[in-house]
Design a protein around this nucleic acid. Structure first.
Length: 615
RNA sequence: GCCACCUUAGCUCAGUUGGUUAGAGCAUCUGUUUUGUAAACAGAGGGUCGUCGGUUCGAAUCCGACAGGUGGCUCCA
């Protein structure tokens, strides 16, 4: 027997558990109609239709019990080959309409992935048209299931598993299809690995940005304002502002200029740009004064293009680069909203560069350099996904420009030493793009920065420049966002840092704690506060009539990077011994620092956007 | 939008099979305490049990609708 590598084995095991779960379900509810049951990351699922009976988590105990019984019985998995017609016959007889549909697709198209097959046009087909002649089944105990395999030898050869949750899932992922119930389980080779996984889930829960957002007082969501519309507190606003400023300062160094546009716009603009009909999630604004229909802007690119197009442009002016941290509004369906990561008001650090085809290469390389710089400062790893053309004939813009753009994208990622993959056929018809996937501390990947070439909008919005021979030419438009959506980035970054923000982002950088309520103590603390504020630091005073221990604990819980305790000793010697948040100390703290020296160091760290303390 | 589940004080949660004035810890406020690196002590205030409707002699508890949330599905310019 061929030795399988570990990943194959664990997937096989998980897949076998899906079968075991399905056989348990069929034992408990013989009328169950089965969909598909694959292995997925960390586990497996099975799509089920129990008719009127719906499963809930209360049923898990019962199902797990039957599954364990099947495991204990060590039922061998046996492979059975049937002709396709026999198989269809089996599906009909055992009243498994979903399986029957899959088999029919296999017969006609040779694949069950043929989602878009129009069933109505398919009548009976001849033998020669049959794409698949035989299919395999696997049996354990009395349970038979259509399955490509492979499986473990017998039902005893599975690891530790646990049913997790039940969710709705559309049959074959199509919204118009009936909805089935998807029963999820996790499974690992050993009990220890399963426990480790469950612990990781707990850790993720602790870091959940919605929880930390509340605990650290960063944002709130009010039912009256509406779902998907977070309100940022003063602390949360510091984070937004600092991140936004970082993005803009970085871009300014590469020649980007700030612009400002309104938040509502005549619908006409989006009709011209082509966005109007394509995106249904728009908010419409009507007025009693004006006959025009307005939209809350769902994107900013056509506006920036209007600024570009406000007067004739010479080739000498290009590239023209506009940037803006601005809000766009999208009416996400209610079930799609999630904390800060899916919201209805999205703040983008959006930019649009208008350039000649010859300038594309340099501009793209600049952008990739900016992304590198940004995520280095933020202390996050990332990789790039390059979406390029395939050989189809549907792409707008000339071939030479595409070739050149794709080559310069790939070259620039190589030069920056960025891990990347090229996916052909994923480009939009109007231009190639790069998505940067950022990895957080728990190893999860998120799409944040993105760049996209656009040959379409310059056409639709009729943008041009005059070249050195006096002829009108089309510029190319490059869309870019470094953070992407500031809300989504914050959700990722809160979880990445577990709320322990680097000094330059920390909503509160220094907390001054008094040991008593003597006037001298207060006066000394207040003087430090004054001095810190003059240096532009975010500092606060805890002068409560509480024990020092309690006040330290509070500062620790609030994840304040530096805490200064002020008492007779500090007043006398004019020195402080900063208490440094545990994650920040890369170099052991100096036992004592002059007050001014300390504050200047913190100001310096802030200005330099250092991630770890150097005190 | 769809499926399952959840909603009790600012927060985290108790609240037995429906039975009088719904509890705790933290937080808040008041008093005492004047504190030296992760929780001083005492007292007080705070809830139409998400909302509306129904069943019942009686509802936080049972049923329904709606709203919000959680996990998925679908979607994500």
């Amino acid at each position: 027997m061929v030795k399988e590598d570990n990943t194959t084995t664990i997937e096989t095991m998980r897949h076998s558990l899906a079968h075991i779960m399905a056989s348990a379900i069929v034992q408990l509810w013989p009328d169950a109609k089965l969909g598909v049951g694959p292995a997925v990351e960390n586990g497996f699922y099975y799509d089920l239709d129990l008719g009127k009976r719906t499963l809930s988590e209360d049923d898990f105990d019962q199902i797990e019990k039957v599954m364990k019984k099947i495991v204990d019985e060590k039922q061998p998995f046996t492979k059975v080959v049937k002709s396709i017609d026999e198989a269809i016959d089996w599906a009909k007889k055992s009243k498994q309409p979903y399986k029957e549909e899959l088999l029919n697709d296999l017969k006609r198209a040779g694949t069950t992935l043929a989602k878009d097959l129009d069933k109505s046009e398919l009548g009976t087909i001849t033998d020669s048209e049959t794409k698949v002649k035989e299919v395999t089944f696997y049996q354990n105990g009395d349970f038979v299931d259509l399955c490509r395999g492979p499986h473990v030898e017998d039902t005893g050869k599975v690891g530790a598993f646990k049913l997790m949750r039940v969710a709705g899932a559309y049959w074959r992922g199509k919204e118009t299809n009936p909805q089935m119930q998807r029963l999820y389980g996790v499974a690992f080779n050993t009990k220890e690995e399963l426990n480790k996984h469950l612990e990781n889930l707990e850790e993720a829960k602790k870091r959940d940005h919605r929880k930390l957002g509340k605990e650290l007082d960063l944002f709130v969501i009010s039912d009256l304002v509406g779902p998907g519309l977070p309100l940022f507190t003063p602390r949360g606003t510091v984070l937004r502002d600092e991140l936004g400023r970082f993005s803009q300062e970085l871009q300014a160094r590469y020649g980007y200029q700030r612009v400002t546009i309104p938040h509502i716009t005549r619908s006409e603009l989006y009709k011209v740009s082509g966005h109007y009909d394509k995106y249904p999630e728009k908010f419409t604004v009507t007025s009693e004064e004006s006959a025009d229909e307005f939209l809350l802007k769902p994107m900013s690119c056509p506006h920036h293009a209007q600024i570009y197009n406000s007067r004739p442009r010479s080739y000498k002016e290009l590239p023209i680069r506009y940037m803006e941290n601005t809000e766009v509004y999208r009416d996400e369906k209610s079930g799609e909203l999630h904390g800060l990561s899916r919201v209805r008001m999205i703040t983008q650090d959006d930019s649009h560069c208008f350039c000649t085809p010859e300038q594309i290469s340099q501009e793209l390389s600049n952008i990739i350099e900016m992304v590198r710089e940004m995520y280095t400062v933020l202390g996050m790893e990332y990789r790039a996904i390059l979406s390029f053309r395939d050989d189809q004939d549907k792409y707008l813009g000339d071939k030479k420009t595409w070739d050149q753009a794709e080559k310069s994208l790939e070259d620039a990622t190589k030069v920056q030493n960025i891990e990347y993959e090229v996916i052909e056929g994923e480009a939009a018809f109007y231009g190639p793009k790069v998505d940067f996937m950022v990895k957080d501390a728990l190893g999860r990947e998120w799409q944040c920065a993105t760049l996209q070439l656009d040959f379409l909008q310059p056409e639709r919005l009729d943008l041009h420049y005059i070249d050195n021979e006096g002829n009108k030419q089309r510029p190319v438009m490059i869309h870019k966002a470094l953070l992407g959506s500031i809300e989504r980035f914050l959700s990722v970054y809160i979880e990445h840092t577990a709320g322990k923000f680097p000094i330059w982002l920390a909503p509160e950088q220094i907390r001054v704690i008094t040991v008593n309520q003597e006037y001298e103590t207060y006066a000394c603390a207040d003087a430090i506060l004054d001095q810190a504020k003059k240096l532009g630091l975010r500092v606060s005073l805890d002068n409560d009539s509480q024990s020092v221990g309690k006040k330290i604990r509070k500062a620790e819980q609030d994840k304040v990077p530096y805490t200064l305790v002020i008492g007779p000793k500090e007043i006398k010697d004019k020195v402080v011994t900063p208490r440094i948040r545990s994650d920040m100390a890369v170099i052991a703290a100096h036992p004592e620092l002059g007050i001014e020296e300390f504050l200047k160091t913190v100001a310096h760290e802030t200005k330099g956007r250092v991630t770890k303390s150097s005190l």
